[in-house]
Amino acid sequence: MPKEWKGIMTFTEQRFGQIEEVSLELLGGARTLAEKTGGDVSTFLIGHNIKNLAKELIAYGADKVFVADHPSLTYYQSDACTKIFTNLIHEQKPDIVLIGATSIGMDLAPRVAAKLQTGLSAHVVKLEIGPDGILRQIVPGFGGNVMAVVTCPEKRPQMATVRPGILKKIAKDESRQGEIIELDVKISEEELKAKTLEMKIEPPPELPIEKAEIVIAGGWGICDKECFNMLKELAKLLGGAVGGTRPVLDEDLIKEDQMIGQSGKIIAPKVYIGFGISGEMHHVVGILDSDTIIAINIDSKAPIFDFVDYGVIGDAKEILPRLIKKLKEKLERKQC
């Protein structure tokens, strides 16, 4: 009898021997789903000299870790990775396959899904198991103005790429037991038609915005150097990071990695404060998971006010320097 599609498999992404945060989140999310679906949570780990990471994946919720280790796999190689992952899925028959919606995950997942001739949804923001036992994938469309519930009723596996920061990783438990399975990997150079020659990291000079508890964001309304220096000062005072909208990126006031929204970062800080930001959906989809949203805008009709907890109608250019001054006074007093 053919093997039945069962359990959940995730893709573990590592770069330079470091597991990407989203991969641990996928394991956490998979554990929650597995309570309903039953079956194992397994994960696929690929790279070179990375076997040592398998234990960590078990500690974060994997029951089985399939390891593909090969000198040709030091960097992500789409052709080889697609082939090994597809074969593994064919053999293991997981019912659900989850992949992080990163630059690498989004390169790999569609190709694997096409090879398997199955469905894939992109940038999923929520996953749940329906009463029929089928995975429901909530996907934003039209710049986040529309949410769609997508299923893959017949083909298997059910595949999704999941936005970083959406699922929660479980507490690390070193005592968890799991199985580590080393795959027999053969790769010929010929197979690497699109070959990654090198991978360079340009580390962000400051705290990355998706890791910051407080994000101070600026938009077109305060789009000048002086204001952005003030944003930086404010971020420093509060221990946060600076982000912004597309127009301020276009003006080079922030870096690509600081842009928030549909084509930028999705953030979930404790507090987001937006200065001179209109609140276009493209931007807003990136901040919806913030605990508290504060915005300052001169226009009482700005759409951002529909999304705030606290909105101030006023001139950000006046408020910013006063806010910094007052905060400095307060924080100094605290220190005495």
Binding site: N145, F305, D306, F307, D309
Partner: peptide, 14 residues
């Protein structure tokens, strides 16, 4: 399909 709902306090200060 649905529109994303917003559950925010929406307190506005002027």
């Amino acid at each position: 399909v649905f529109s994303p709902e917003v559950k925010r306090k929406r307190k506005i200060f002027e």
